[in-house]
């Protein structure tokens, strides 16, 4: 979580952040078991579109990447690749306790313990898995953060790029691999 709350935007960035907050497109990428709570949030009962959020197919078009649940090392490679294909300003919202401290897979050799070491997270939504009401609450919080200029994860990633890369390579070895079955 990025704790820097200083607001140093100029007036164009404030207007731009107003637009970014009210129209967030999520990358349609279901990384873990928390993704089962996304379809109810998107469809008629809880209706995410009221907040201006909607799904988009590719990382180039998307604003927010949802890490829904545990993250195995295999998936982490793809998530890092997708995150670097996204266009700034980009946000990451992490669902579930697996992203905070490992959750119920805290002692697994194949999943990561803390997402914060590898990718900059703007908002955590705790729970195992969080229900749609919690998710909508969290998204409203994200909208407020973006309007106030507090969702600066992407800037933090650019400024501390070497630190993030070192953590990623320490855990994964290589990010872009040649052959999956003989890694």
């Amino acid at each position: 979580m990025v704790l820097d709350k200083k607001d140093d935007r100029n007036v164009w960035e404030k207007i731009g952040d107003y637009f970014s907050a009210n129209s967030i497109w999520m990358k349609w990428y279901c990384t873990g078991c928390g993704a089962i709570e996304m379809p109810p949030t998107m469809t008629s009962r809880f209706d995410m579109e009221r907040l201006g959020m909607g799904p988009m197919a590719t990382p180039r078009q998307a604003d927010v990447l949802l890490i829904t649940g545990y993250l195995s090392t295999k998936t982490l490679r793809r998530v890092i690749y997708s995150y670097e294909q996204m266009n700034s300003p980009r946000f990451i919202v992490a669902f579930g306790s697996c992203t905070i401290n490992g959750g119920i897979y805290y002692d697994s050799y194949a999943t990561i313990g803390r997402l914060d070491k590898y990718l900059p997270v703007d908002l955590y939504i705790s729970g195992c898995m969080p229900r749609p009401e919690t998710i909508m609450n969290g998204f409203s919080g994200l909208i407020e953060m973006i309007k106030k200029g507090e969702a600066k994860g992407w800037k933090h990633y650019q400024e501390n790029y070497e630190w993030y890369k070192k953590n990623q390579l320490d855990s994964l070895g290589k990010i872009i691999i040649e052959d999956e079955f003989h890694e």
Binding site: Y29, P59, Y81, I176, I177
Partner: peptide
Amino acid sequence: SRKVELMDTFTSAEFIH
């Protein structure tokens, strides 16, 4: 725009060489 090369494209995050 940021210029990226042709192979850095959306492949459902799969690595194609």
